[in-house]
Amino acid sequence: MPNQPLAKAALLMLVIVVVAVTSWEIHLRNQGFDTTYYDDPALWAHKRKMVYEPSDKATVFSGSSRIKFDTDIDTWESVTGEHAIQLACVGSTPLPVLDNLANDEKFKGKLIVDVVEGLFFSIHGADDRPVRNIKYYKEETPAQWASFHINHLLESQLVFLDKEWNSLGAKLDELPLKDRPGVQNFKGFPSDFGRVKFSRQEFMTDKMAADTSISNKVIAIWQMFGRANTTPPITGKPLDSLFAAIKTSVDKIKARGGKVIFVRPPSSGGYRAAERKFFPREAYWDKLLAATSIEGIHYEDYPVLAKLTCPEESHLKQSDAKVFTSELIKILKEKGWFNTSATK
């Protein structure tokens, strides 16, 4: 039988693949890994479709990684009874998302915009992820929609489906190879940093929060980002134009009965010092609020929030994210955020 060898080969392949994948799954679970979700455009588009929920039932979050780490969605939803829709994208400016929502006539809800000065007050932001996500959302095909739902089913059960940290590419990135002088290699975040829930909330593991050697690795990466970014902060006319564009977007949302508020989550140590140096509060944050006539919540103005420290200087650990979220809810309540009547 000419096909017998291939049948045997297929059987051998099946047996080894099943054994290898099962062993890998068990190994990762024993290592303490839990299920995580790949934060790709499909997951973002899934959340983007939810922004049309009634404004008394949901709040949309936009920004960069800080609001993703610092907002504990379970806390938010259990305390407020409202749905939290996370649209923030790591390493990027929230302005494309703000613009997208502002120009969507159907969006009339509440929007919290996270301000991380180095990303927010830049022309393009560091990463084009929001633009790619919006493009995907607009062009998503039925096949992509179906693949996303099948993928979700698998990702929610299998720990080894973890593209960010346990895929072939991620493991190759961990190889200790020396780069040529001048090459900026932004890989190398530890796998305990940046686990993702289906809600798109991101969190660092408790192991990382407790182990300063892991946190220091991340701090070193922030410092490398800082050295790589040689563009001076925007000032003068470009900054005024940026404020004008933000105001236009915010006014469009407000005109439809929606609400917008800016939030400045905590940062610590050297990172905060650099932010103070390059983006002094009075020249950026205060001006932003004045130029857009929008309220803001700066963590330094609230004693409970001001006490929070970030293990790797930029994001809160899980337990502190709960504190931050509870406190944020209290402040927002005082500001009438959850009142059903719209603020115009």
Binding site: P5, L6, K8, A9, A10, L11, L12, M13, I16, V17, A20, V21, Y38, L161, D162, K163, S167, L168, G169
Partner: peptide
């Protein structure tokens, strides 16, 4: 052939 097949299938799964 079986080993070759195994390796390419595992790499497909692993690359994600």
């Amino acid at each position: 052939v079986g080993l070759f097949w195994t390796i390419i299938v595992l790499l497909i799964i692993w690359s994600q």
